[in-house]
Write a protein that binds this DNA or RNA. Sequence first.
DNA 1: ACATATTCGTTGCATAAGCAACGATTGTCA
DNA 2: TGACAATCGTTGCTTATGCAACGAATATGT
Lengths: 144, 144
Amino acid sequence: MSFDLDQFLPYRLSVAAAQVSRRFAALYGAEAGLTVPEWRVLAHLHKSEPVSVRDITVRVNLEKSIVSRAASRLEQEGLVRKSGHESDRRLIALALTRKGRDLMRRLGPIAQDFQTQLTAELGPDAEGLQRALTRLIARDTPPK
Amino acid sequence: MSFDLDQFLPYRLSVAAAQVSRRFAALYGAEAGLTVPEWRVLAHLHKSEPVSVRDITVRVNLEKSIVSRAASRLEQEGLVRKSGHESDRRLIALALTRKGRDLMRRLGPIAQDFQTQLTAELGPDAEGLQRALTRLIARDTPPK
DNA sequence: ACATATTCGTTGCATAAGCAACGATTGTCA
DNA sequence: TGACAATCGTTGCTTATGCAACGAATATGT
């Protein structure tokens, strides 16, 4: 009996994740053309700022070079402001600009609605999915 | 109340998928240095061959250019053979070589074992996860 | 205090992904 | 049959990713 890719969990997870990401990107694409890293940085800043690049890499599971470049792009678009940390001059303090906050005020509800819709689609399996994801993420070795 | 990325399903799915992929790559990395597309192509060929590039793009959720390049690399490494389709000369028939079949004979059990281990880790939530993934994948708009 | 190690953010470089365009072939339909 | 459209696989090009290396700043240990 031969191995069946269609039943293989890593494959299924990857396809599902890509699929869900595409759907979500289509939703916020109307409001702003963001990459996934850019979205994650904004979302994290929205709930806690100011914060360093390093903090973000740890909290949103992105490599530091990716966060660095995403932050630069966001700064260039006027969504994020970079300033020096007071006591530790190695650190950079990232914060949302007024424009960035406005954008997140529109994107937040979109994300919430999408989450609600997904949960509805999944019905009774939504909880099991969340628990399973928690377990998988828990043993995280973050990307460098 | 502010949006929380840590509870956002697209984010959680993406992190979990990346995490599981890394773990699996570490396992088969000892046997062969394959990229994800290469692994998927081999896995699909293992269960049905010969098959065209187009077939693979549809069945393993990869864009055709990615499959094309993966197939070329695999051919160069002697794992896959390309030959012309008999009646339709636009098509290419991909098949495993002896070496490719041998590799998959080693990789198949590794994948199975990993699946078993994951299922064990997830315990009672494994089923809910699989059902949820099935639902998410079902409404698939494949990548091009 | 001083040499050394470590951390932070950026950048360079090699590889991968995503999309459009292309030549070659086959399908469609008037 | 013959023009036109559609499909297949490859390739070019732009952008994204992942890793290593770097300069600057701070921590550490003797």
